[in-house]
């Protein structure tokens, strides 16, 4: 039919001035069997494009529905709980240690105090003795 037409289209095709519709015409034309010899050398190119368009992506894509974000938030919460726990736990520990130290000091001080009291009692006896001694001396 349209050798001239096709030739003209081809010329414009290689200058890249054809429209998508015209290129579609060319592609369809070259899929036919009865292509004249002088045009036949262009056929593989157009046939290749048609074949290349048939290629499909067949791999399955694993789409995870939202789980990811939940895990993220849970981990953030867990970490914050852990950090607060450590912080306040340490505070509590320190307080307990301070209390223990206070108790120990008090115990030690009271021990000292009782021993000191006993010491003064003895000194009281000594004074009594001294007074009696003085009395005896004075009498003599």
């Amino acid at each position: 039919m349209e050798f001239n037409n096709i030739e003209k289209l081809l010329e414009r095709y290689f200058e890249a001035t054809t429209t998508v519709a015209e290129e579609e015409m060319l592609r369809e034309y070259f899929l036919r069997e009865d292509i004249p010899l002088h045009l036949k050398r262009h056929a593989p190119m157009f046939q290749y494009f048609s074949v290349a368009k048939e290629e499909r992506f067949t791999k399955q894509v694993p789409l995870k529905p939202r789980k990811k974000s939940y895990i993220k938030w849970i981990s953030i919460a867990a970490v914050s709980v852990l950090v607060f726990g450590i912080y306040f736990g340490r505070n509590y520990q320190e307080q307990r240690e301070a209390e223990y130290a206070y108790q120990e000091t008090r115990k030690a001080l009271s021990l000292l105090a009782t021993n000191l009291g006993r010491g003064t009692e003895k000194v009281a006896y000594l004074r009594e003795f001294e007074e009696t001694k003085q009395k005896i001396y004075n009498r003599n």
């Binding site: 056929a43 593989p44 046939q47 290749y48 074949v51 048939e54 290629e55």
Partner: peptide, 15 residues
């Protein structure tokens, strides 16, 4: 890819 179509066209090498 597309072996059958290529055979059908008998131009597999060119493609």
């Amino acid at each position: 890819e597309n072996v059958s179509l290529q055979n059908q066209l008998e131009v597999s090498d060119s493609l």
